[in-house]
Nucleic acid binder design. Structure first.
Lengths: 222, 222, 222, 222
DNA sequence: AATGAATGAGAATTCATTCAT
DNA sequence: AATGAATGAATTCTCATTCAT
């Protein structure tokens, strides 16, 4: 009987290989929006356009879905970032610019920009995941990328920072906050929120702060 | 030992006046830790040291408990901050220092430092609360305190910022991120986290960024 | 310290002996209205104008309150009815009239008119009470009062009934239904409900039914 | 033995079409027996032979289950009754006989006979339902069926009633009481209860009451 | 492989009952 | 004697997970 195949063609059974990723995407977007506990499996299935039971064909539990979602976003590593640092022709400031630009572009395109919000919200309910997130993303980006750039900049006399280790955290934190805000309270701020403009403001802040030094002020105006 | 309670400490009944605040505190700390949905009323009661039903003597529902918790933290306003700005003898930089210092101290002491994490996680589940939070805290602090200081600083030639409106958001954001981090992923960061040190680094970043040397300025323009 | 006595005088501590009856009255009226299960002890206390705990000073449980309420209404027996039957000078029709009139008056004045509704609703939850009610009221009134009148009427040639045993149930049933209706659906009948008028109609129905025989019609008009 | 279900009788899943009615039946029988408040959802599920959660697949709440149950019984209207009245060849007395006979049969077969008991008990907790019940059953049967028969009987000289409007209520009331009694206190009456016999007695009572006039007795036998 | 009806453990909420004051 | 704050067992309802189709 060709019954099932006929109707399943229209919408039901597209690229079978893409399923897992679609499911994880749907789950991630809902987890991000409502949090893990407040997200219903049925809603995930609905958003993915499949039946509730189908989810369990690919993932054993709701928690596994979360793990898979985080895993998927954690997978693409930052080998390219490392490459940037390796380039000896660039100034440290240029390196910083490019690295942050790349991170920004990549995170904005992928769901990665949502991950911090999710992890911050769920870290105490899923400590293992939290640790993974910190160890595989936060710490490496800070310690193996940003810090090295900073140290090089200091060594070259480009930068003047009294506590590089924590300066790095400031730079990263401000960056991450941008993502968090965009995925949360920005929606409730009547004043509007322009991510690109904020990024620019942020880059300026990193470079020259409020431009306290008179001499610096001139350049900052540029 | 001069314990606080009069004598009914053993199993302590009848402290009607203190109850609501105790309950809200217990609820807030759990909401902050696990999120609203993942927090069980029974756990709130246990942490407050009362029976499950007692909570419902004071709050009609779990959601009302959340509202009360947020409300309580939103109540104390920042009249004192306003006073600081009004002082014409201080430089803008000093004003900023003091205002941020005060915010820091106040938020660290009260539960207010946890509110951003909570609101960021729950904003989509409780839009009304989110709006309240933004309108009664975020926006006023940015627009009526920080921005005014910045503008005065610019007018006085102290500061040099190209986009004051968003610079304010950067300053506030970095600050808020400190709180968020301390209430979430800091616990999972093997490298440790010293809030005070980060605050210092952050203040420096605000003031002078990476301290780009005059010569560096050229590259920064690139 | 004369503190407690002073304020307790105004409203708090009237006739102490009347308490139990007041409590039972409040309970009965609420049980009647909402049913036993749907009635909250706190509402009973409120209606009686006392604190929740006070109820337990007089009755050990909610169920005991119900038992006491029913008991109280079941107590006054119908010795006087029996006396009426004994009067040999009255016709059976007159006896019936008086007996039903007396029942009507008594039941309307006391809460007794509500008891059937309550018992009908609760009989399966409180079988013992139900049995008591049937055995101490329903059956006696039917078998020892009404049936005897009917039998006397038949013997005297006044009445003509083919099944006296069940005719008695019809008479009693119609009567009881009047009470039930008045305590329940009458409140939701837009057409209004005049108990006295219905009683009159009912008495006529008992005496002469629809007046099928032309000759009977005249008496029916009387 | 030719059981009804096809084969999945053992633990029987998947009978989606029959489910809602089964659930409503189970619920109705329990509501009727114990009242709404005293009935536990779990018991309803058990009586219907399903799990607790299954109920919520079909009805959103316990209250909706009640509404559905009442609705279901209120649905079948009395078009056939109307037809009987329209027949001009029947005497009014014959019409009355048939109408009441039909009501009796129908109500006894369906759960309708239980509805009055339920509605009387719950009317104050569910006023909207009560009004519906009165407006869609009680009032129509009385005003559009019984009253018309009575008026026709009076016009034709068959009946002789001084207050037709309330006579109708007596007739209907006695009838309804039969149902109520059968669903409640009859179970606790040691004397037994024969509904059919009581119906007969009731029909006689309607026709000729107690046959007060000596001459009336003969006709009462008719 | 896909589905969604069915399930029951678990969470929020209610309320009879207790008991310190 | 009177109170009402406190309690936790019991109840309604939800939702992750299973499984027959």
């Amino acid at each position: 009987m060709p019954e099932s195949s006929t109707k399943a063609d229209g919408k039901g059974r597209r690229r079978k290989e893409a399923r897992p990723a679609e499911l994880v995407d749907a789950a991630f977007s809902l987890f991000l929006e409502k949090g893990f506990a407040a997200t219903r499996i049925e809603d995930v299935a609905a958003r993915a356009g499949v039946g509730k039971g189908t989810l369990y064909l690919y993932y054993q539990s709701k928690e596994q879905l979360l793990q898979a979602a985080v895993e998927q976003l954690l997978l693409p590593r930052f080998g390219d970032l490392q490459a940037l640092i390796a380039d000896p022709d660039l100034s440290a400031a240029e390196q910083l610019d490019r690295v942050l630009g790349l991170l920004w572009k990549h995170a904005s395109a992928s769901g990665l920009s949502g991950l911090p919000k999710l992890m911050i919200g769920e870290c105490h309910n899923f400590p293992a995941l939290a640790r993974q997130f910190v160890e595989r993303w936060i710490a490496p980006v800070q310690d193996q990328v940003l810090r090295k750039i900073l140290q090089r900049g200091i060594a070259r006399g480009e930068f003047s920072v009294s506590d590089p280790e924590y300066a790095v955290r400031c730079i990263a934190g401000g960056f991450v906050f941008l993502f968090i805000w965009g995925h949360s309270l920005a929606d409730f701020d009547q004043r509007g929120f322009d991510p690109e403009r904020q990024r620019t403001a942020w880059m300026e802040m990193i470079r020259s702060g409020l431009g306290l030094a008179p001499t610096t002020a001139e350049e900052a105006l540029a």
